[in-house]
Design a protein around this nucleic acid. Structure first.
Lengths: 206, 206, 206, 206
DNA sequence: TATGAATGAGACTTCATTCAT
DNA sequence: TATGAATGAAGTCTCATTCAT
């Protein structure tokens, strides 16, 4: 291997990294601005400036603003899924898995509500393409699905569609966490436990 | 009373109605556009056009766009409250009241999801003035509050803050109704009953 | 003369007064707003409101905004002329007349600069019709003209066109008074006297 | 130096010029419109059209209309200062310097009155920031200040504040030049000389 | 005569997107 | 590939003026 190929590698790595960096920087900047200032006033120029690239550069990586935002939406969903399911093992007792997920949600809301508040914003987007994207999003929550499946098979959970179970349980966690983050409702540790238990009551058989 | 005074009355009513009509037309047009196309692309000119008035006319009735939207928000909240609590009597058994409210929500979602889908949109507004307005909105849901209060007093419900109880029960109804309206989840009558029962389990003591 | 005709007279007087009042009120309101807030933001509605009449009413007394402002301009000029020449008698010694006029100007500036500051504003109007209006305005300053005429005849003043003499003397007073009113230059009594004397030097023969 | 570098230079100059051109074109267009039509009806679109650029382009170079006009104001002041003091050397006799300045003013008025008539317009602007800007403007007239200072030191001029001396002398030149340009007063050479002498009489000791 | 609701042109400004370099 | 100047459509809001009552 000679100097040139080394150089070549370095450069292409450099180039690759640069390229990846640009895309990543743009996404990061967009998320950051979205969390800080919301949709209003989120202009392509502002994003470019925050990302340290030229305005035109964004269009090399994203068709247009809508595509950029769709990707952001997916990333945030992904991050939520990852965080939600962190430290959850399919071998753990269902009850414990449920609790861990609830608390994960809570942490998500606590870190400034950045991620969650983003989520709210996307709700005002024209709704995702509903076909392939819905499926894709569901796959992200494999451990949640697995938990519901197991719970129903063992007769612990009510025999309802997973999405309904989700709406009755963890979705409530999202709703309450948001209100907690906004300061509308205050939760101390005991109240939090009580809320978790209550939502658990919604999905188990009595 | 002679013919002229009758005519006079009619005409002044006419005049009054015309005036009221303009304001009302603008509000209706705004709601309609909001439900159909969402916030993006909701321009004052579009509103004016749909309302059948000139662009400048809107500003005779509303200080600016923000005021117009705030009023819309309040109207929708009001309509939701009214519909939600329709046919609910504080003398009815709690269980029945709860069921009626749930079904009311469902009807709200069925009429094209117009009202509910609106509600989502407003969530991305800068949040109401948080002082007097929050109070005002809560008063709209007096029967809901009353139900929770009674339920807790009688030991039927868990001793949680009303807002938490709401999040665990009727709010779930809103969430599911929305998904139903969007066609994401299908509910037949039995499933609906099961969902109502499940959410009931969340708030009652076991 | 019976009661009815009395009533009739009273009413027509009333009507006449009302009519005159309206016109006058509009002019007063315009001047007042102009002095307080300047041209920017001087809308017909604001004028109407301040005058206590409806917006449309203005158009019964003035063709359009331009005509209204032209009339205002003339009124202000008139007021300036009156004030400038107050207490000036053609029998007084020229030197004294000159001094009185200068001091009159100063008072004009002192009363809040309202009148003078108005004057500035009109300068940005499209310039008067330059034919008949210029003549009309000159007639307002008869005593000034008279003073210059006499001064030249007696050999006291330089043999220059009146308008040039005016620019060399009293106009300077206007300029300085304005700067005084704006706080740009401060004049104590001695300085004021010195300025008067200096401008006097400009027009007399040495 | 080879052809390419020459070409390179030319191109980069071209690029530079193009950029500068836009800004300059906008300023020129604004001045021109201001002189021709005054403030009323001076719209950003009109400016853009006259400058041969898109409306949005103006906002790349100026924050908003106010900033654009402030810059115009400063440019005009600058141009007046430059022209006024042209061919004036601090070594020349004071009397001669004074005369040259007066004549410079006259030339300023003669070239269509464009610059001077502009000056009037700015007077109706909210007045400059009064702190640094006033100072800045005064510095532009260094030779004028120098002349007054010397004249007072030598006992030739009256011991008055420079701004008062200016109002008594050169300011009169501005006033008369404006009227001359507007065709209100006609000045032949002798009259002009007489006016210069008269204003000189205002500031010298007798 | 007086009203004031209504109009709609037009003002300033923003911003997604393009394209020459 | 990256830039960023330029574009121009579209947005919110103001305001002189009209006209039915």
């Amino acid at each position: 291997m000679n100097v040139h190929s080394l150089l070549g590698d370095m450069m292409s790595n450099q180039a690759l990294n640069t390229e990846q960096d640009k895309r990543e920087k743009i996404l990061k900047a967009t998320e950051s601005l979205l969390a800080k200032e919301g949709f209003q006033g989120l202009s392509m120029h502002k994003i470019a400036k925050h990302a340290g690239v030229a305005a035109g550069t964004i269009y090399r990586y994203f068709d247009d603003k809508e595509h950029l935002l769709k990707e952001i939406r997916f990333r945030v969903t992904q991050r939520i899924a990852t965080t939600l399911q962190a430290n959850v093992d399919d071998a753990m007792p269902i009850r414990q898995r449920y609790r861990v997920m609830w608390l994960n949600l809570w942490n998500l809301a606590r870190d400034g509500g950045r991620v969650l508040s983003n989520r709210v914003q996307y709700d005002s987007l024209p709704i995702p393409s509903t076909e392939k994207e819905w499926e894709l999003e569901r796959e992200l929550f494999a451990k949640v699905e697995q938990m519901f499946r197991e719970g129903k098979q063992s007769g612990l959970f009510k025999p309802l569609d997973n999405r309904i179970l989700f709406g009755l349980s963890l979705q409530v966690g999202v709703t309450l966490a948001r209100k907690h983050a906004l300061g509308v409702i205050h939760f101390d540790d005991d109240t939090l436990d009580a809320a978790i238990d209550a939502s658990w009551d919604a999905i188990i058989q009595h």
